[in-house]
């Protein structure tokens, strides 16, 4: 699955920290392209909405920075 997050709304530090935390659960990769973070995240059986959980996690970290 691919998620696109605008760099304008999500901080780089929050994205990096989220990747660090999620990579223990599933393979995850991030590239920066046209002002967006493009995140490739693999499905996990136990967590059906892992991409949305990831986005929520990044938003929470961005807000609390």
């Amino acid at each position: 699955m691919v998620i696109s997050l605008k760099e304008k709304f999500y901080s780089k530090e929050a994205v990096m920290k989220s990747i660090e935390d999620f990579k223990a659960v599933t393979p995850i990769k991030c590239v920066s392209e046209d002002g967006s973070f493009i995140i490739h995240i693999s499905k996990v059986e136990d967590v059906p909405n892992i991409e949305e959980e990831f986005v929520n996690y990044v938003l929470a970290l961005t807000q609390t920075e």
Partner: peptide, 27 residues
């Protein structure tokens, strides 16, 4: 944007939130 973050944060436990931008530069 700080206000949008704060409002979004309240909803994070029950909802999935994604922030994006349209062609009019609205959030």
């Amino acid at each position: 944007i700080e206000v949008i973050y704060s409002a979004s944060y309240v909803f994070l436990d029950k909802y999935y939130i994604l922030l994006d931008e349209d062609h009019k530069k609205n959030v």
